[in-house]
Design a protein around this nucleic acid. Structure first.
Length: 283
DNA sequence: ATGGGGGCCTGCCGGC
DNA sequence: TGCCGGCAGGCCCCCA
């Protein structure tokens, strides 16, 4: 799934197709993804218009005229396809239903939105818009990494006393909400911090470098994700062009790209997940 | 309270 | 060609 930049790219892709538009028909093709869909989901969506498309961490929030918000998480393999008309322009024909297409929205404006999720780690739920932030999936999330509440003082404070490796701490959505395995690897490589270092034992100086690095990596990834929106078929949870800019992730046994570093990227497993890093320059 | 591991699912890829 | 193990962008839950 998509990490924050991919989810933001999907949100931006949905905007021209859904913003202000009425959901004329919602097809719900199975009873659940990771959890059961909310009761009568199709009926609670049909006939209502979309008043806003927001994102919180890796969740897409679709506000409806019914005063309910559709919460969507793409899990590991969630994708979204847009077909039909988008703002009066024909994008492409509705494709035949594919395996793992689970939910389909037909919009009154001629757009069709198809949700596909092979592994079904994704989720959908409905909650009152007024209290959506207190939904059980959202209430424990930490600050948005691109928001004002996430600053150097906050992160430093959040890391204090933590014995868990910094890699694991940055993946903890209660500390900062939206980073996933790829971008944490990239951030730690840029900051030359060993992923195994105990979170609470990182100096203030080095902790302070994490905040701008996190912002930069996410912003750069969102920027290139935007270019993949030209073709609405690409409005899915796939990694965008930023994957060509990875400097650590997926580069096991390849030379480290840090200036002046002669190291080789290695792979270790932390909390059951692969960590790619350079043992030479990341300390 | 914190930290580690299991589990949820399917698809793909490399090795035999 | 076929089977099997290992791997994958997430995150909740249980146990120590």
């Amino acid at each position: 799934m998509p990490e924050l930049p991919e989810v933001e790219t999907v949100r931006r892709g949905l905007e021209p197709a859904m913003q202000g538009a009425v959901i004329s028909d919602a097809q719900v093709l199975r009873a659940d993804l990771r959890w059961p869909f909310p009761a009568n989901m199709a009926a609670r969506l049909t006939g209502h218009s979309v008043t806003a498309l927001r994102r919180r961490s890796k969740y897409i929030l679709i506000d409806l005229s019914s005063a309910e918000t559709l919460i969507i998480h793409l899990g590991m393999s969630g994708r979204i396809l847009i077909s039909g008309q988008v703002q009066g322009t024909y994008v492409h024909d509705h494709p035949p239903l594919e395996k793992h297409d689970h939910v389909v929205f037909d919009m009154a404006n001629g757009a069709r939105i198809t949700f596909n999720d092979a592994r079904r780690f994704g989720a959908m739920d409905l909650a009152p818009t007024a209290s959506v932030e207190t939904h059980w999936l959202l209430e424990k999330l930490g600050p948005e990494p691109l928001g004002n509440a996430f600053d150097q003082t906050y992160l430093w404070g959040a890391l204090q006393g933590r014995k868990t490796p910094i890699k694991t701490a940055l993946l903890d959505q209660r500390i900062v909400a939206g980073l996933g395995n790829i971008y944490v690897c990239e951030v730690l490589h840029r900051c030359k911090i060993a992923p195994t270092r105990q979170a609470g034992r990182i100096s203030r100086i080095r902790s302070d470098t994490l905040v701008p690095a996190i912002r930069q990596v996410l912003t750069e990834a969102i920027d290139v994700g935007g270019s993949s929106l030209q073709d609405h078929r690409q409005t899915n949870g796939e990694l965008g062009y930023f994957q060509h800019a990875f400097r650590a992730y997926g580069r096991e046994n390849l030379p480290c790209l840090t200036d002046g570093c002669l190291g080789t990227i290695g792979r270790i497993v932390q909390s059951g997940r692969s960590t790619f890093y350079c043992p030479q320059c990341q300390r």
